[in-house]
């Protein structure tokens, strides 16, 4: 069987690399390497050597030009030392090779702003959606119920029944699209795999605080048509053990946190397909 290798990129303001790598290991990856962006830029680390790329939470460049904008620009233009290849090219090759990319929070913002999600018609460089300031105008750290679309092609949400309860921690999580057709396509193709919902996962909601940011159609996470590239505002890596749950001292919970399934599914996919 393939040795499943996960890569977590950090640097320039990424903050969740440790827990993301931890979640990868718990989920079944044989290796979870945290690489500083400078190690990619110098060519010490190459995406080609890994199966699962984690673009995780943080404030890339302080979100100074809008969340993740500066990093999107950097990856597009800055070339790996000794070559003319920008990281963007490596990234497109990675996706083309059938590998997995999970963007969480700031990583989701990065994917959307680079055009890699929803990437309708397999166009991974045209931006058609965005994540912008929460309707409240405030950063929010709170836990949210996320209804899962069982018909979604997402590799990561496979097998989740009903939904999953995870923390959100962001100031710019409101999902918007460029045109009604984009939203229609996202919905018709079941790409909106996670939506903010009520506690019973019966219906998506636009009500604050259940929907913490006012996202269009309550969208919390989307995937591309292959289901291999996914982004979400909530943090699955932040709930891999019951003691991370806000009510673990009062509820009977399984030892394992509900966010781990995203990483377990990824590891399983890698082992079976790559």
């Amino acid at each position: 069987m393939t040795k499943a290798k996960a890569l977590v990129i950090t640097g320039n303001g990424t903050n969740c690399e440790t827990e993301a790598a931890h979640a990868c290991r718990l989920g079944g990856f044989d290796e979870a390497r945290i690489a500083h962006i400078s190690e990619l830029m110098t060519g010490e680390v190459s995406l080609d050597d890994y199966h699962f790329l984690n673009l995780t939470g943080g404030f890339l460049d302080g979100d100074d030009l809008g969340s993740a904008k500066a990093q999107a620009n950097r990856l597009r233009y800055a070339a790996v030392a000794g070559s003319n290849e920008p990281i963007l090219e490596q990234l497109l090759r990675f996706i083309g090779d059938g590998k997995l990319v999970l963007g969480v929070c700031n990583g989701f913002q990065l994917l959307v702003k680079m055009g890699m999600l929803p990437a309708l018609g397999s166009d991974y460089v045209k931006q058609t959606a965005t994540l912008t300031y929460n309707a409240s105008g405030r950063f929010q750290d709170r836990w949210c119920y996320l209804k899962v679309d069982a018909s979604s092609p997402s590799v990561y949400t496979r097998g989740i029944e009903g939904g999953v309860y995870l923390p959100v921690r962001h100031g710019e999580g409101k999902f918007l699209v460029d045109a009604p057709e984009t939203l229609t396509a996202i919905e018709n193709k079941h790409l909106a795999c996670l939506k903010y919902s009520d506690a019973d996962y019966t219906a998506a909601t636009m009500e604050f605080p259940e929907n913490p940011n006012g996202s269009t159609n309550a969208i919390a996470g989307i995937c591309d048509e292959t289901g291999r590239v996914m982004g979400l505002m909530p943090h699955p890596e932040a709930f891999v053990h019951r003691t991370q749950h806000p009510r673990w001292t009062r509820e009977e919970l399984p030892e394992e946190g509900a966010g781990l399934v995203f990483f377990r599914n990824a590891a399983q996919y890698v082992k079976q397909n790559l």
Partner: peptide, 9 residues
Amino acid sequence: RRYDHEVQG
């Protein structure tokens, strides 16, 4: 709630 109290896991 404006302060991230959970980062680092």
